[in-house]
Amino acid sequence: MPLSRPIVPVILSGGSGTRLWPMSRPECPKQMLALTAEETMLQLTARRATGERFAAPIVVANARHADMIDEQLDAVEAGAQAVILEPMGRNTAPAIALAAIAAGGGPAPLLIMPSDHVIADVDAFHAAIHAAMPLVAEGWLVTFGIAPDAPETGYGWIQVGEEIAKGVHKVARFVEKPPLDKAEAMLAAGDHAWNGGIFLFRADMYLDALASFAPDMLVAAQQSMDKARHDGNRVYPDADAFAASPADSIDYAVMEKAARVAVVPVAMGWSDLGSWDALYALSADVDGHAHAGHDGGEVVAIDTTNCLVRSDGVRIAIVGVQDLIVVASGNDVLILPRGRSQEVKKLIEAMKDT
């Protein structure tokens, strides 16, 4: 396969982003929001994979977001060649299968990207893609290992094995989300990376791997696409056929089982923006001042340090506080100490019971 073949970006946009409540909600999840810049997470993701090396993207998403996706991508001149609207969520492995089939199921290289991650150093990302392409052409399944800077227990890890091409290594093993002591040991060892959920491989190689390791998933995806309804660039896979697919991640279904799996370690300013604390870490300045967002609400902060304060409507006025996260959206206000934003999920569960 010539390296000049355009890479097809596949943007996975099925998540609901509940950890960034109250701004992120099922009807408008975090990838549709401008959280780190003037553009939304989806727009920034699409922009990362534009230019002569890339084809128009394929987006896999929830049907309720179809209009928002088209509007946002058109606004940055990154219109999708196909927006595949899943009838229900079945995790990443079946979603990627739909995209691989939509891309023709042949040797086209697919760049799989979550729609809601931050990559600050796009040049480093592109260099990693370039390093991976010769092995992708040979049929390898490639993942990108994020250079770790903390003993993170919320991510899966990858042990980086022998180098098989410049900048590209065999995957020695995938590691589940580890306990703290194991994460500390992997960080200290220096031969592990975070699993950021970004992949590059040929469509046919991925579908072949599914045929070997998850044949029921491949059949369900293929049948749902064979019976799909088309409306412009929108693709509606058949609901009954897709419902028969097992729900599984690409890591479990394919990457941990396939033989020719490689990793490109890369430091590219990556974050999955998985919490308000993560957003604080991205936006904090050296003086630790209160940080207002790009959301349209007014924030007045006096004698306030080390806080993340955002509003998309009501004015927030705070005096003499530190180490807080305060987020207002619509009729909801979230207030919690920095360091506890992972507990937003508990709040959402508690509110369901009221």
Rank of each mutant, 00 (worst) to 15 (best):
G274P: 05
G296A: 04
H291E: 13
V309K: 14
A214T: 02
A78W: 15
R25G: 08
R47F: 09
A328S: 12
L111A: 01
I101V: 10
A102V: 10
A214L: 00
L347Q: 08
M133W: 03
G161E: 08
E138H: 10
F144R: 01
A183I: 01
A281D: 14
R173W: 01
A55T: 05
A102R: 09
A220M: 04
M217C: 07
G104C: 06
G320N: 12
E138P: 02
P57V: 02
P94L: 09
E27T: 06
P246S: 06
V326W: 12
R338A: 06
L324T: 03
A247S: 13
P87M: 04
V264F: 11
R260D: 05
Q72Y: 10
F125W: 09
A172K: 14
M23E: 11
A258G: 12
A221W: 07
G196E: 05
G51H: 11
L324I: 04
L282Q: 15
V136P: 07
D191N: 15
A247I: 06
V299M: 08
A301L: 05
A82T: 03
D67Y: 07
D287P: 02
F144N: 03
I129W: 02
P337V: 04
I119D: 02
A34I: 01
E86W: 08
V175E: 06
G79C: 08
G196C: 07
L35T: 04
G288A: 08
D123G: 08
E349H: 09
L218G: 11
H65D: 02
F125K: 03
D191C: 14
D353I: 04
S341W: 15
D149A: 15
D277E: 12
M1K: 10
R48F: 07
G190W: 05
R229E: 00
A183G: 00
I198G: 00
S275D: 02
V327L: 02
E71H: 15
R229M: 07
A147L: 10
G89D: 13
A258H: 09
G79F: 08
L35K: 07
I302W: 06
L187Q: 13
N91L: 14
A211F: 08
P29Y: 09
V266L: 05
A75V: 09
K346H: 15
D67G: 04
A350T: 10
G313R: 05
H65E: 03
F54L: 01
L12I: 07
G145V: 00
H289V: 03
I316M: 06
H291P: 01
D251H: 14
E176W: 11
P109L: 03
I198D: 04
N306R: 15
G145I: 00
I316D: 05
A165H: 13
A259E: 14
G145H: 02
V122Y: 00
A46Y: 12
W276K: 11
M268R: 12
A147E: 14
D353V: 03
S329V: 01
A78L: 10
D226V: 00
L98C: 02
F201V: 02
F213K: 11
V254W: 13
A137M: 04
V168I: 08
G313Q: 06
P87W: 06
E38K: 07
A172P: 00
S271P: 04
I129R: 02
D272A: 15
A241N: 10
G320D: 12
A61Y: 01
R315I: 01
